[in-house]
Every structure is written in C-alpha cells, then in structure tokens.
C-alpha cells in the first residue's frame, strides 16, 4: 500500500518534477511529448519488474506475446501515460491550450441529477480529470473526488504542487471512516462524487470476469448509492487526439438499500463490460500498472 517516502527520494522526485514542468513550460505540448520518447524508452526497456506486472494485461488483450511485442505494448502504454501527465501539467502552466471533447450518453447523467439526489460518477484509471470536469460541470453542483492522497510528488496534480485551489473537492480515503461521512453528505446535498471503481483496496467487492479472468471489483460505490438513494453513473474518458477527448457516459443504475451479492453482481456487471469495451478500443489508456488479476 502507500508508504511514506524518505526526504531524499522526495527531493529527487521534486527535482524531476521541476524539470518536467520546466520542459512543458519551455517546449510546450509537442516538445514535452517528444522529450518523453527517450525517457519512456529507457523506462520500458530497463524496468523488468514492470514487464511482469503488465504482461498479464497485454496477454488478455492481444494474446501470447513475444519479448518484442511485450516491449512495444509497454512502450505505447507508458507513452500514453506520459502524455497524460504532460496534459495535466499544461492545465496549470498553459491555460491558453484548450482540450476539446465529445460526450456520449450525457442525458442519462442529467436525468439522474434531476431526481434530486446527488450522483456517484463511477470512473476508472483512464483519461484525465480535467476532461471529466468540463463534461459534467453543472451549475450549483459541487464535484468531489473520493481518492487517496498519496504522499508521492509525482502522483500529485499541478494545483496541489502549486498550492492553488483545486477545481474539485478532494475527499481523502484516509480520512475518518474512509471519507464516508463527507461522501454521503455530498450526495445528500445533491452534489456529484467521483469514485474510481476499477481498483479494489479494501471493503466489499465482487469477483467477476474481466477480460476472461476473475478480478476483484469494488462493490462499495453501489452500496453507498443504495444508502443515499442516488444513482451510479459510469463514466470513462479517452484521449482520441492531441487535444481531443472522448467522454463515454453509461446508463445510470439505482441500487437498492443494502443490495445482496447477486444484486451487486448485476450492478457491477455493466460497468465491467463498459471497461472491457473501452480497453479493447483504447488498450494503452487503462492505467493500472499491476497484475490486476492476481491481487
């Protein structure tokens, strides 16, 4: 799980980030993307540990891999993640650069909000939050994100490092009772709470087939929604071009209070299916760099 890093590691990370942001500022988006190539090449080539962690995913998508294919998938995957990090930095450093997006399925989300309660936006480790925020922004509705506040500098967003007001409210999972009090209050106030639904840390889960092998998918967002009487709306985003993105919004589901295992499986199923369709279309944009099926 999360470990506290030493001061030296933190300083080195800080130095790395300084040069990263400096590159973005000086070289712009295209220049920063170009700079990624040698860095990612070395990382993908020399980090043997990553091969073990990511090959199970590539094999489920692409079938049996040669060493070269494994490297290429890793390289493409990390390049996409690198571009995402550059885009994140650009939001803070270069507000003149605009990100466009197209949205599919927004009506269901708006209908769910109309019911009076808040909405849980169930998302995954894909795409970028800034696109999500632009796509779902509704007047008078606060957006919160239930997330880990990792102490690692590299995982922080630009606004956290710059000490400026974040564009959404962060509810820390490490807060008292996992942030559940703030989460339920947000929902009862009619606000929007984003939860990553594709990575299980603790709490109830459903063992369900994902890409043909059983994986643990968190059930808590659905139980939470059942208690609040609100909808769960799946949402995934993908980078479809240099500055263009696709926002895919699934159908809302309305869990009952305290759903049993069979009901949870029915609720989790369509979300997993949506991620499966997504990863077949955008295999290098699902950012879970660990053996998802072995946890």
């Amino acid at each position: 799980m999360i470990k506290t890093k030493s001061k030296i590691v933190n300083r080195l990370e800080g130095l790395g980030l300084f040069f990263f942001y400096l590159t973005i500022k000086i070289a712009g988006q295209r220049g920063a993307y170009l700079m990624l190539y040698p860095v990612i090449f070395c990382y993908a080539f020399f980090n043997i540990g990553m091969k073990k962690l990511t090959d199970p995913y590539y094999e489920l998508i692409f079938g049996k891999l040669t060493k070269q294919e494994s490297f290429l998938h890793r390289f493409n995957h990390f390049m996409n993640f690198g571009r995402l990090m550059v885009d994140r930095g650009l939001i803070g450093l270069r507000p003149d650069i605009k990100f466009n997006y197209t949205t599919k399925g927004k009506k269901g989300f708006l209908d769910a909000l109309e019911k009076g309660c808040g909405v849980i936006l169930l998302t995954a480790h894909v795409g970028s939050w800034q696109v999500v925020l632009s796509a779902i922004n509704q007047p008078g509705r606060t957006v919160s994100s239930l997330m880990f506040r990792d102490d690692g500098l590299a995982t922080k967003h630009f606004f956290e490092l710059a000490g400026v007001e974040p564009p959404f409210n962060i509810i820390d999972v490490d807060n008292y009772l996992g942030g559940s009090i703030e989460t339920i209050n947000s929902l009862l106030n009619g606000d929007i709470v984003m939860i990553m639904g594709d990575r299980h840390f603790k709490g109830p889960y459903i063992n369900i087939s994902f890409l043909g092998k059983n994986a643990k998918i968190p059930a808590s967002p659905f139980i939470l929604a059942g208690s609040a009487g609100c909808a769960v709306v799946p949402l995934l985003t993908a980078k479809s071009g240099k500055n263009s993105n696709e926002v895919l919004i699934g159908n809302p589901v309305w869990p009952t209070r305290r759903p049993d295992a069979a009901q949870l499986e029915k609720l989790v199923g369509p979300f997993v299916k949506m991620i499966e369709e997504y990863v077949y279309k955008y295999p290098y944009q699902w950012y879970n760099f660990y053996n998802f099926w072995n946890e």
């Binding site: 559940s180 009090i181 209050n185 709490g203 208690s227």
Partner: peptide
C-alpha cells in the same frame, strides 16, 4: 461497524 455502516447511520440519523 465499518465505513458503509457510518453512511447508513448518517442517513438514518437525518
């Protein structure tokens, strides 16, 4: 009790 019970408690107290 766990965090999901806390959610229920908040709703029920309300």
């Amino acid at each position: 009790l766990d965090s999901l019970d806390a959610v229920e408690l908040v709703v029920l107290l309300r």
